[in-house]
Nucleic acid binder design. Structure first.
Length: 569
RNA sequence: GCCCCCGUAGCUCAGUGGAUAGAGCAGCGGGUUUCUAACCCGUUGGCCGUAGGUUCAAUUCCUACCGGGGGUACCA
């Protein structure tokens, strides 16, 4: 229907006002008194043609008023064309949009999108701030998969670097040798790491020992390799539990260590091509043209050691060669924006044929009081925040013990608590900084995960009572007239496929979160005003179908955002 | 110094060329013989940081400035 409206308007534009290249853009008006679809094109045309906007609008009105499925067309305001659709057309359109509720079949011919996210450091527990990249990245993976696009979800582990040398030294000095390294907890490892930094402040020799140990590890020292492997094993096991709670899944967790033997060829290539040149103190750098305003980019230290930058170049090469991706998305915070500009510019200078490559930036998590530091051990652990969230959810559930319907309060608390935290992050524009505040992060009412979950449970409850729990929504052929709240809800439901597309293409999951919240508001308003089970005939049929449709959209949308919704609560 | 992001209601945030700038929280007033009141309805509250410019139309685009955050070669 909308596609046909678009064509018709385009036809009018081409035949009545030839020679104009303005794009037709139908919008869904905010106010329902402006119709189901609106066109502001006459205003643009008017200034180009030096004619009155309302006269131009009239041409569109005349052409559209007899169009099938159109109930009413009006000129409004300065020269808008507002179109109302017939009930039949709206319901038909709704039926056609239903496919957005289930994932599109995987298109195997399409090249994959690599999403690089989470990026934890080995030997350290996840801090709260890690949740940003983790859930944003997962939501982006889900959005693409839902559209049938192949995805490689990539957890790029920080499993290499000087910190292992330091940890090895700390373990050697203060560790409990009776315990094998695999039986250490992350907390115990962190303790060693923190102690190392505390003591290194007074004893500079420790740092040297740490660097020396890492060099030995790089050279393949057997004992250190075993230690390193043990630490990696311990960390992965511990991370796995948290990822499961967050409903986050990766396709690969190839980390930094994987690229150890893949950097020399890159360095050689860069030198041969004259892209890498000698900088201060024997370092290898990339210089960019004056007008780019990019400062030099360091790819090898003066002492010959490699850096994160070196590994990232090797990684781009590897990803292109192995996956031939259509795009690579780096879900990394804004502090590394310049770094990624330099990285991408360097890959270009090397003359590589690059896929679309984008730094999906997000703001930093700040703390009202003080900055976090892993080295000082002042990090707020993600696990702790999740537990606190679930505890708060339990308290809320307890408050509602008189009316609660759930069969599994523990599962509900987990769903609500974790959901509240995740929703708080995904409902905000990712570019904004987030100031960590317990009450703000763990909101349970208003625009929050529990509100979505409650709305879903309510809808499901109605469907259970109607005996329509499992059937797919079926809309009646004809309905006399729609109530105001039915119409508002239908218009909202119609927007779901477009929202998924916008959220995916702009890599902005909050568009989906905002939409779902709006849908809940419209559904709850409908639920409050229009009786569903007590209605009769085709009205009842319609309302049950709308309830089923809404609940399906809610569940689909929520799960793309990694949330879970309960059947009862 | 230079570069990037942010500045919208008391607070936290949506909206980013179009009609009267929205929501949540907080405040005030209502709604339960109806399918879950974890809800809904109404209401109070805005020089959209400041000043110019572009446009038929600017919170949205451009320029400058002010305020906050981040970055700016041997960390990742």
């Amino acid at each position: 229907m909308f596609a046909m409206l678009h064509e018709k308007a385009d036809e009018v534009l081409r035949t009545q006002f030839p020679g104009n290249t303005i794009a037709i853009q139908w919008t869904v008006p905010k106010e329902s008194s402006f119709g189901d679809a609106s066109l502001s094109l006459p205003l643009q045309l008017a200034s180009l043609l030096k004619k009155k906007p309302r006269e131009i609008a009239q041409v569109f009105v005349d052409a559209l008023k007899t169009f099938p499925g159109v109930e009413k067309v009006e000129i409004a305001g300065a020269g808008y064309v507002n179109v109302w659709l017939t009930t039949e057309a709206l319901l038909q359109e709704l039926g056609e949009s239903e496919s957005a509720q289930s994932p599109t079949k995987l298109n195997k011919n399409e090249k994959p999108v690599i999403v690089d996210y989470s990026q934890p450091n080995i030997a350290k527990p996840l801090g709260v701030h890690h949740i940003l990249s983790t859930v944003l990245g997962q939501a982006l993976c889900n959005l693409h998969r839902h559209a049938g696009i192949p995805v490689v979800g990539w957890n790029y582990m920080g499993d290499w670097g000087t910190q292992f040398g330091k940890l090895a030294v700390a373990w050697e000095k203060w560790g409990d040798k009776k315990k094998s390294i695999e039986t250490y907890t992350l907390d115990e490892l962190l303790e060693l790491y923190v102690r190392f930094h505390a003591e290194a402040e007074a004893d500079a020799a420790l740092d040297d020992a740490g660097r020396a140990a890492f060099r030995k590890l790089e050279q393949g020292d057997k004992e250190l390799r075993a230690f390193w492997k043990g630490v990696v094993t311990v960390t992965k096991a511990s991370l796995g539990d948290i990822y499961e709670r967050l409903h986050v899944k990766f396709d690969t967790d190839i980390g930094e260590s994987f690229y150890e033997d893949k950097m020399v060829p890159i360095l050689d290539e860069g030198k041969k091509k004259g892209v890498f040149t000698e900088g201060k103190e024997g370092a290898l750098i990339v210089e960019f043209p004056e007008e780019s305003k990019l400062p030099p980019y360091l790819v090898q230290k003066g002492d010959g050691a490699t850096l994160y930058a070196t590994r990232d170049l090797a990684q781009i090469r590897y990803r292109i060669d192995t996956y031939q991706p259509q795009s690579i998305l780096y879900v990394v915070d804004v502090a590394q924006q310049l770094y990624f500009q330099q990285l991408f510019a360097t890959a270009q200078k090397l003359g590589w044929e690059l896929p679309e490559i984008e730094h999906v930036v997000f703001g930093r998590m700040r703390f009202a009081e003080s900055k976090m530091s892993t080295r000082k051990g002042t990090v707020l652990k993600l696990e702790h925040v999740l537990d606190e969230a679930v505890e708060r959810a339990e308290a809320v559930i307890h408050e509602h013990r008189e009316t609660i319907q759930t069969d599994d309060a523990a599962a509900l608390a987990e769903m609500m608590g974790v959901g509240a935290l995740v929703y708080g992050i995904l409902s905000q524009n990712r570019k904004m900084d987030i100031v960590f505040d317990w009450d703000k992060m763990l909101s349970f009412d208003g625009n929050s995960a529990p509100y979505l979950q409650y709305t879903y449970a309510r809808a499901r409850s109605v469907l259970r009572k109607a005996g329509k729990e499992t059937s797919t929504p079926s809309f009646p052929k004809a309905i006399a007239a729609l109530t105001q709240s039915e119409r508002v809800l239908i218009r909202m439901l119609l927007q779901f496929p477009g929202v998924l597309e916008d959220a995916r293409e702009s890599r902005m999951p909050h568009l989906l979160a905002t939409y779902l919240f709006g849908l809940c508001q419209d559904f709850n308003a409908f639920y409050n005003v229009d009786p569903i089970l007590l209605a009769e005939g085709s009205t009842k049929e319609l309302r049950i179908a709308l309830t089923a449709f809404s609940s399906n959209v809610l569940k689909t949308g929520a799960e793309i955002l990694t949330l879970r919704v309960p059947e009862k609560m």
